[in-house]
Design a protein around this nucleic acid. Sequence first.
DNA 1: ACCATTTCTTACCTGTAAGTCAGTACCTGC
DNA 2: GCAGGTACTGACTTACAGGTAAGAAATGGT
Lengths: 120, 120
Amino acid sequence: MVSTPVSITARCPIRTTLELVGGKWRLLILHQLRGGALRFGELRRLLPDISEKMLVQELRHLTDAGLLVRHNFGEVPPRVEYELTEAGRFALPLVEAVASFGQQYQRAVVSHERPDLTQA
Amino acid sequence: MVSTPVSITARCPIRTTLELVGGKWRLLILHQLRGGALRFGELRRLLPDISEKMLVQELRHLTDAGLLVRHNFGEVPPRVEYELTEAGRFALPLVEAVASFGQQYQRAVVSHERPDLTQA
DNA sequence: ACCATTTCTTACCTGTAAGTCAGTACCTGC
DNA sequence: GCAGGTACTGACTTACAGGTAAGAAATGGT
């Protein structure tokens, strides 16, 4: 053993977050689940323009990441629910921050035509 | 005038934010500029694995969005600085939230192998 | 017998994000 | 007089996010 090969990578936390919840849909899914568990079909109705394929795929990603739990009731026709885990609920303040920044920016853009954001 | 055609779109604030600062690089750029203006070359050095093309492109996007100002000193060799605007500084808490969530998640992942995040 | 419902898979395709690389213009230092 | 730094631009290419559409499996209703 010549040198110490411990975790060279020293992951950037911003990149970590982007890998977890980056992309077009994940924050929106987490946001919809803020109030409690939802069935697959309910999520699809709440996110009108997501394709089924993407919804399945993103739900699976979030579940693998430990932010969601999947409840399969084993019934037929299928009945499945998704719910935030403890870690998932931990992401809610982040979702809130994203939403609130978007709101402020929108307001600033309608009042002036270039964002100012000086006044809350 | 039969109906009132005012702004059907009612933009989702989360989507707005994603369009503004979504993607692989924009949050990282904003983060680097948190302490004040930086030259193009300094940013390139601070973000080792961004390509010059992407850096130019993303700086331009953020400038067009009103989050950055570009200072061209008109010297030769070229000397250009980028700085957060008021609106850009408004995004810093968001960047912080993203970074801190990533940190918590990382810590949770190293201790258990599935994120828990119960203990701060 | 047939159709609808529900969650999910699979194959295929498109568009855009991102990367590579070369070149430009002007000056300084050697 | 040529290499080197500086902030770009543009052409070309690759990778991947995302969309479309079809179908599977099991059951209940008519």
